[in-house]
Amino acid sequence: MSNTVKPSLLTGVLAQVGRWGIFSFTAARWTCSAPPALGSVLWEAYQIGVQSLSIVCVIAFFIGSTIALQGYYAFREFGGQNLVGIFVALACVREMGPIVAGSMVAAKAGTAMAATIATMRVKGQIDALEVMAVNPYRYLISPRLLASLIALPLLVVFADFITVFAGYLVAVYQLGVNSGTFLENVATYIGMRDVFFGMIKGGVFALLICLLSCYQGYYSQPGPEGVGRATNRAVVSVCIICIIMNYLLSEMMYG
């Protein structure tokens, strides 16, 4: 434990970022040098995937339908309401699919990671692991890291499909857009490349979500309030960083 001088806001933030960097580096080093057992990784991936699948689907559905609505009314202003398929396809597959999957994994699996690890820290179980000569990075962080790297890109594909599907339902059955036009628009403007880029985004989000959540849990403050605070910090920091990251990635991929 370090005994820091009373920090100002700026040095406090810088110190956090630095500590997070070291944490992430250590986690990456342990993951590469002593990979965790495949069984535990797959089990975690199953947990993360199944835990978040239903909510990703439900939310993707609502987001897709709302995007169709907004797009339709916005394009109608210029008489282009039949182009709503393009808008839905681009917005959903390039942006909303990865964001929906990422934010729900952050909300469910990320908070679970932060809470579990923070509880272990608060109850002295991480010290106990170290005393039993079990490296906490290897035992707690590496499996979660690899597992989210597997699960999130797959969830992105689900979210892509469902957002577009919901957009189709709303556009065709509620707003009366021609079904053939919609599908043709989607097919012309979206390719495998976009889905694949979305999965890459998902992978980057997975890294950020896992490393930030585990970090907040790992350095949780003592006491039961510490666990709550760690969980909340995890959600907020993940959200902010993923929004910015999402933009940078979109810029690199489609810019």
């Binding site: 509880t119 272990m120 109850k123 002295g124 179980q125 010290d127 106990a128 005393v131």
Partner: peptide, 11 residues
């Protein structure tokens, strides 16, 4: 081996 103050069992 170490016995922690309240056991530190993994929940």
């Amino acid at each position: 081996g170490m016995l922690f103050q309240d056991g530190a069992l993994l929940d």
